[in-house]
Design a binder for these strands. Structure first.
Lengths: 147, 147
DNA sequence: AGCACATGGTGAACTAGCTTCATTATCTGG
DNA sequence: CCAGATAATGAAGCTAGTTCACCATGTGCT
């Protein structure tokens, strides 16, 4: 009798597996998860100040500095001076960084397809609907608790 | 048109939220995720050598030593000598550790219920079935790749 | 102009978790 | 009884993240 506990367990299990898979893919490119987050954000934003990354990714400014340090050291990114505001540094993906980001995104897309494509459309639809309802319930719960 | 990418994204999103919630719960008890894994394993196994934890949790022996160190320091666990084999140390949950583990498990169960209970049974069933199929596909993929 | 305050970024020092390599005790089988 | 396996730990280093203090630069207000 597959109850709610089972459903939750399976969800988490899939997430763990997918994340492990992504970590492996990242590692082969010399990236970690945190650094990849930064690289992806840059990839679809273009050159931005670190502050922008900090707020967008919910990561402390100090932390972004460290991650960008690492990305610079491994050649995914460069730091350029801002043309007018000398406080800010513009983090810019290198050619290599951009290509890596694109490749990884494509790989992730392929994975999603391999996992869900070809299933009866109504099953996938039900799956997504249940997920959406569960997410809504979750937000309700935490909204109630966070008071 | 919610495609496979969307389905995967939602799945990961739910997992992230649930994990954050669990982390919060653990933190209020002075635990981290890794330490909690160890504590839970002990909770339903009783006193065992560290080696057992190491293999069961897929964590290096050295690492278990550190986690147990922390659990001892925070009073969730004690190290007892093995009666016959003087190499091994038996890690034993304290009363406090056992109670905490039970409470957290109950909380997790409640969360699962709050998220899924009361839904049409066939919807939850479909949800779980889709997940099972996706998990099966995933394992097929990685089995093919791992060669 | 000039000063107060806000903003962007960093240095230093710390924690958790994890890894590798080496070492110490202890057990076990031939 | 000794060789080799096994249990646990010491030492050192890495990634990620935190907090606190600090410096440089911009901006707004008077």
């Amino acid at each position: 009798m597959t109850g709610p506990d089972t459903a939750l367990d399976r969800t988490l299990e899939l997430a763990v597996l997918v994340n492990e898979d992504m970590d492996r893919a990242l590692a082969t490119d010399g990236l970690t998860r945190s650094r990849a987050h930064v690289l992806f954000e840059l990839h679809h934003r273009g050159p931005v100040p670190q502050r922008t990354l900090s707020t967008a990714l919910q990561v402390s400014a100090r932390n972004i500095t460290g991650l960008v340090d690492a990305l610079v050291a491994t050649g995914f990114v460069t730091r350029e001076p801002h043309p007018t505001d000398r406080r800010v540094v513009l983090v810019t993906p290198t050619e290599h960084g951009a290509r890596t980001a694109a490749t990884l995104a494509a790989g992730r897309h392929q994975l999603a397809s391999a996992l869900f494509d070809g299933m009866p459309a109504n099953r996938v639809a039900t799956y997504t609907e249940v997920l959406d309802e569960v997410l809504a319930r979750f937000r309700e719960l935490t909204a109630a608790t966070a008071r």
